[in-house]
């Protein structure tokens, strides 16, 4: 549906053409425009420079920019494709694309594997798994004795480490996810299907006219 009175609006330096971004992701051009509304909000919450800083990401997730969280940090690092410490609009859209309900499942599986491969060795190692369990317990203020944590990690490793080499590779992760599809639940954001409804103001400022 086209817009009657399109108006050019100022774009940040990291802004990328919605047509290009739509061609590389599951989003339509209109959805990319709607995501820009969200991006503007997130990227101006602390420093108004058109880039999402780690503190702004934390603020959006937790309503607290000082809160340290291992998993939020990992997500930020994976979104930061250029590894320059900030997330620009193109990175934001491309990374969120993995979370779209229509994104290929193998992209979600790969992203989750990278997320849990804390030290980026190509494997999820036992120490990393324990570190993540301990971080989760700390975050949730749950207290479990160390031997219980060890038992949880051991049991998971016995199940996942099919080759028995003490580490989980991508292939073993794929098998584990087949067995426990719920492990990918966080990798799909239903919101992304309704993004144009959540951020409708783009309709008034859109430069894009969709041809349907």
């Amino acid at each position: 549906m086209g817009c009657c009175h399109s108006k050019k609006v100022g774009r940040t330096p990291g802004y990328e053409d919605p047509i290009t971004l739509a061609s590389e992701t599951p989003f339509t051009e209109s959805e990319v425009e709607a995501l820009y509304e969200l991006f503007k909000k997130l990227s101006s919450s602390i420093i108004n420079d058109g880039l999402i800083h780690r503190e702004e990401f934390q603020l959006a997730l937790f309503r607290n920019c000082k809160k340290q969280n291992l998993f939020a940090d990992r997500i930020f690092d994976l979104f930061d494709l250029k590894r320059n410490g900030v997330i620009d609009f193109g990175e934001f859209v491309r990374s969120l694309g993995v979370f779209h309900p229509n994104a290929p499942v193998h992209h979600k599986i790969e992203f989750a594997f990278k997320l849990y491969d804390l030290r980026q060795t190509g494997f999820i190692e036992r120490e990393e798994l324990k570190e993540m369990v301990v971080a989760l317990l700390h975050e949730s203020e749950l207290v479990l004795a160390d031997d219980v944590v060890e038992a949880i990690v051991d049991k998971t490793f016995t199940e996942a480490d099919l080759k028995g080499d003490g580490k989980i590779d991508q292939e073993e992760w794929d098998e584990l996810v087949k067995k426990y599809p719920a492990l990918l639940k966080n990798m799909t954001l239903p919101y992304l299907k309704d993004i144009t409804l959540a951020f409708p103001s783009f309709i008034l400022t859109s430069e894009v006219e969709d041809i349907e």
Binding site: L38, L42, A60, L61, F62, N69, L70, F71, A72, D73, R74, I75, L96, F99, L115, Y116, L129, M132, V133, A135, L136, L137, E139, S140, L142, L144, V148, A151, I152, V153, K155, T156, E159, L176, Y180, A182, L183, K185, N186, L189, Y191, A198
Partner: peptide, 26 residues
């Protein structure tokens, strides 16, 4: 489900830091 009975990854996946839905809350 008791945390002790969960698969470690199931437990981890409950982290608020992995819930990107929060980004869309106004």
């Amino acid at each position: 489900q008791s945390p002790a009975a969960m698969n470690a990854f199931e437990l981890i996946s409950t982290s608020q830091g992995l819930n990107l839905g929060s980004l869309f809350e106004k």
